[in-house]
Amino acid sequence: MVMIAQNSSESLSFVPGPWWSPFATTAGVQIVHVALSPDPACESEAYGWLDKAERGAWGKYLPRPRRQFTLCRAALRAILCERFDCRNDQLSFGAGRHGKPFAIAGGARIPFNFNVSHSGGHGLIALSAAGRLGVDIEERIPRRYLNELIEAVMAPEEQTELAALPESAKLHLFYRLWTLKEALIKALGTGFSTDPSGFQAPPAMRRDGRSSVFSFPNLPSVAWMLEDIGDERFAAALAYELESPKIGR
């Protein structure tokens, strides 16, 4: 077994790549932006970094999600290889019960948390040596079935607040709330088994607040820091566990 050690526990820096670059750093969590516009040269280079299992997954995707998966996964590989000083062929990925990926190097799970999200031409990768985390990004494309989406994924109070807004403000708040909820669900790693309409985003963040502490109603002992990291290009949110003694749960 190859021992994998972090290059530096303090340093969050990494060398930007052809299609990824630093986006933000907050409380020990590093967020990387991945450019996902069509670029055959980058896509073919990225494909070359994938292992057999990933190439199998690649074959099942339609073209756009295929590009998103390939460019994000290859960027993640490059960042983890640099950070843990390992070779690309030593690195592979496993997944939890609901599909949340984790990294394996030299046969052992790397004690490091990351999460990936992609939407349209943008991807984000959040990385942390501390507790669990989740990230979500959504381009704010207009939705034909916005009201149905709101009914399906928002809590009653959120639905009422959204219903009172004019269309463009409604779309904006929908994406803001959805990314907050999705980042939390992705941090938990439970996928669709956690009903997003079963909890609501903190009231302060339903208005203009950029960050807040959150706990799931059925999990009050675990506190998450929730941050709105969206900008004019996309809605995005980050959720990370506060004061977690365990890593890679």
Partner: peptide, 26 residues
């Protein structure tokens, strides 16, 4: 794999539940 975002998938399961007159648990 087809690129359907998760919110749309959840909304779709509600449409299916209505059409088939049943409920899906998360």
């Amino acid at each position: 794999d087809a690129g359907v975002p998760s919110a749309d998938f959840l909304a779709f399961t509600k449409v299916v539940a209505e059409e088939f007159n049943l409920t899906f648990s998360p």
